[in-house]
Amino acid sequence: MRRRVARHAVAGVASVAVGIALWQAIGVRSIPTVSLPALVREAMPASGVSHDITAVLLNFRSYDTLLEIAVLLAAAVVALALRDTPRERMPASQPYLILDTFVWRITPLLVLVAAYLLWAGSTRPGGAFQAGSVLAGAAVLLRLSGLAVLSVDDRLASRVVVVFGLSVFLLVAAGTLLAGQPLLAYPPAWAGALILMIEAALTLSIAVVLFSLFDNAPQSRPAAAPAQRGEA
């Protein structure tokens, strides 16, 4: 009990102190001398796309995005390592007329929305992240409603899809280096096509990784069950 009180007191003091410090810091912050939006606007013609955020994500700071998809891949690998083996197939649920009809109608629509978001990314809000998460959402919806979705396991096909985005990105990065350019500096004439290609690959990988993170969550078998096989 005393430990609990002490914990709350320390937490209270710490968070109030951090809050006050941040609050004050916002007040005294100096005005930046470099205007990033102006720099971005200046460089836009050479970026290959006409939407500024896509230009930043996939051209000006593309190594951020490269590292991001690497982080997603690492998460997917851990998820695969920790999943229950062997997985029993989900029992076929009895048909729910309304749910099934709804899901079958809405899934193609969600795929269409994802394709639109991917395509729209070069000219207006949208892009690989949004498209990938909509696709992943569609897959989660299918899985939750008991309809068959390919599960992400250690079959070769799903491994390939999981690393697809990172591989395409790395190939492009290697290509720019081999062409004598700095890392990930695309030639302006090709930039648009390269960005769309990378984004398409990223969309697929992001969708599959996010879905696999949902799908491979351990089912919390009792500790004594034979699901322990992969232990030690």
Partner: peptide, 12 residues
């Protein structure tokens, strides 16, 4: 960000 947050933050 609004699109991403709506799809990820709310949905997934």
């Amino acid at each position: 960000l609004a699109l991403a947050e709506a799809a990820i933050g709310a949905g997934l």
